[in-house]
Design a protein around this nucleic acid. Structure first.
Length: 283
DNA sequence: ACCAGCTCCTGCTTGC
DNA sequence: TGCAAGCAGGAGCTGG
């Protein structure tokens, strides 16, 4: 599912269709996604104008002209597509395939923005802008890695005394926001650090390296529109390209790309999720 | 406080 | 070819 670079790509794709634009009508095809949608979700959006579309961690935030914020999370399989006019449900080649277009935003001017989410792990909520910071899902979110504030010193203090492995600590959204399974694996490989290391055991030099590799890999991914594995598409249907730059993710059995390293990428399971790394050069 | 495991859901891939 | 198990980019919740 979308991690920070994919969500940022989606944000940029949605900007022209959403920012400064007004909801003419909102078609809500179910009462829940992962969670129940707020009461009168469709009615409360109708007629509202989007003043700004921002991102926090993996959340998209549409700031409305009535001081409310539409909060959106894509979960594992959520995506948006923009069309000049709604062309109807997307029909899968398989008959009986259920339709997963759950919400359609009909904008003034004729464009439609359709939220599709087969696994329905995504969710949306409406919250007053003054309550945003204390919102259940926003309050715990950690450091924004591209804010300029992520460096070795910050990493050291965030990870101090933590016994959890680096892999788990980096996935913890309360510490650093926006990293997911792909970019954690990629950043650890670039920093030549083992995903199994206790987070609290990092030395200053290692933390410096890790912080700069995280910023680097996220930046590179955003530049090319994120990674497309299965579901992620840009809002115009274009594919991201960063999957071609993976060094370890989903590369089990491949030669380690680190220059001079004779290792082979292996897959292990940590906290029930796949970790890809090179045991030879990631000490 | 911290951490591991389970859970939600659908669909694609893999292995027998 | 068919079928079932396994796996997937997230993250809240529970229980130790």
């Amino acid at each position: 599912m979308p991690e920070l670079p994919e969500v940022e790509t989606v944000r940029r794709g949605l900007l022209p269709a959403l920012e400064g634009q007004t909801f003419e009508r909102v078609e809500q095809r179910r009462l829940d996604l992962r969670f129940a949608l707020p009461e009168r979700f469709d009615a409360r959006l109708q007629g509202r104008r989007v003043m700004q579309l921002s991102r926090r961690a993996k959340y998209l935030l549409a700031h409305l002209d009535d001081d409310m914020v539409l909060l959106m999370h894509l979960g594992m399989s959520g995506s948006f597509r923009i069309e000049d006019r709604f062309v109807g449900e997307f029909h899968h080649p398989r008959s009986n395939a259920p339709n997963h277009d759950h919400i359609v935003f009909h904008m003034v001017g004729g464009k439609t923005i359709t939220y599709n989410d087969p696994r329905r792990f995504g969710f949306m909520d409406l919250v007053g802008s003054r309550d945003l910071a204390s919102h259940k899902f926003m309050a715990q979110i950690g450091l924004e890695p591209l804010s300029g504030a992520l460096d070795g010193a910050r990493l050291l203090s965030l990870f101090a005394a933590r016994k959890a492995p680096l892999k788990a600590a980096l996935l913890d959204q309360r510490l650093i926001a926006g990293l997911g399974n792909i970019y954690v694996c990629e950043a650890l490989h670039r920093a030549r650090l083992s995903p199994l290391r206790a987070a609290g055991s990092l030395k200053k030099g290692e933390a410096d390296r890790l912080a700069s590799r995280i910023v680097e890999v996220l930046g590179e991914a955003i530049e090319v529109g994120g990674s497309t594995l299965r579901d992620h598409r840009q809002t115009d249907g274009a594919l991201g390209y960063f999957q071609h730059s993976f060094r370890v993710y989903d590369k089990e059995g491949s030669a380690c790309p680190t220059p001079g390293c004779a290792g082979v990428i292996q897959r292990i399971v940590q906290s029930g999720r796949s970790t890809f790394y090179c045991a030879t050069c990631q000490g």
